[in-house]
């Protein structure tokens, strides 16, 4: 009995310690990024490569996800619209929910899965193959050289991808509205433009900035602290995407509350 209690305490303690390590580590990583950006100096080519890779790599899946998300929200709104016959509200219902909430969340989760996970795997592999130690031996600060360009690329690209995603979601929604629900595209578009405000659109973009920030810091932290070979890389990727998902929902909650 006492043994079981001890074992339980031990497990809880280990869990708590690793939790504390990661939460602390994420803040330390942020502090190191800020430190590396003061005074502002940027590795131009490396940043450019990262902007390109992050943007191009995630563009197709963001477009596909957004297209389907728009379609799904139109269907979900359509179930109510049908009931009350208020077809003029379809564009508002779908557009509002996609721009404010579902769009940034879905694209953020996809981005975390595609870019965040990839970033952790990449940095992690460099870590276990001692490439980062090699950089240090050449007196190159790995945070300056590897992390800062990724950090900037991820924040900027998620912001841009959410803009693109919002637009493709509208296209997906319009097609679904026309062909599945039988609601004319023009009516859908009219309702969207009339009822959805710029505030709805821009509050989604603010969320995108916050999500991009969180995914960047979290994925870099987990990548730079990998230990234990290929298995360690897999575990780090797993932890990174889990932590990013949690961060997305927590940030979303506070931003929703602040931007009511």
């Amino acid at each position: 009995m006492i043994k079981a209690v001890n074992r339980g305490l031990e497990l809880f303690g280990a869990w708590f310690m690793s939790m504390a390590f990661d939460v602390g580590g994420i803040f330390v990583m942020f502090a190191r990024i800020v430190r590396a950006m003061l005074p502002p100096k940027l590795d131009g080519p490396e940043t450019w490569t990262n902007l390109y890779r992050v943007g191009v790599k995630s563009f197709p899946i963001v477009v596909v996800t957004a297209m389907f998300t728009g379609a799904i929200m139109v269907i979900q709104a359509g179930l109510y619209i049908e009931q009350y016959g208020a077809y003029g509200l379809l564009g508002w219902g779908a557009g509002f929910s996609v721009f404010r909430e579902v769009g940034p969340i879905m694209i953020g989760l996809m981005f975390s899965g595609r870019v965040g996970a990839n970033n952790t795997a990449e940095l992690g592999t460099m870590m276990v193959t001692e490439q980062i130690d090699a950089l240090r031996a050449l007196a190159i600060n790995p945070v300056n050289y590897l992390v800062v360009p990724r950090f900037i690329a991820m924040i900027l690209m998620l912001f841009l991808l959410v803009i693109i995603g919002d637009l493709t979601a509208v296209i997906g929604g319009a097609i679904t509205s026309q062909y599945l629900l039988g609601v004319d595209m023009e009516l859908f578009y009219w309702s969207l433009v009339t009822y959805v405000t710029l505030v709805d659109f821009s509050s989604g973009l603010i969320k995108a900035l916050a999500f991009g920030f969180a995914i960047a810091v979290i994925s870099c932290h987990f990548g730079m602290t990998v230990r234990g070979g290929a298995v360690g890389v897999g575990r780090a990727v797993n932890n990174s995407v889990v932590a990013s998902a949690i961060a997305i929902f927590v940030l979303d909650y506070f931003l929703t509350y602040l931007m009511k």
Binding site: G113, G229, N238
Partner: peptide, 15 residues
């Protein structure tokens, strides 16, 4: 292909 392959599979799997 090695431990880089595991990283690839892991990220590909989320997507």
């Amino acid at each position: 292909g090695g431990s880089a392959g595991v990283g690839w599979a892991t990220t590909q799997s989320v997507v």
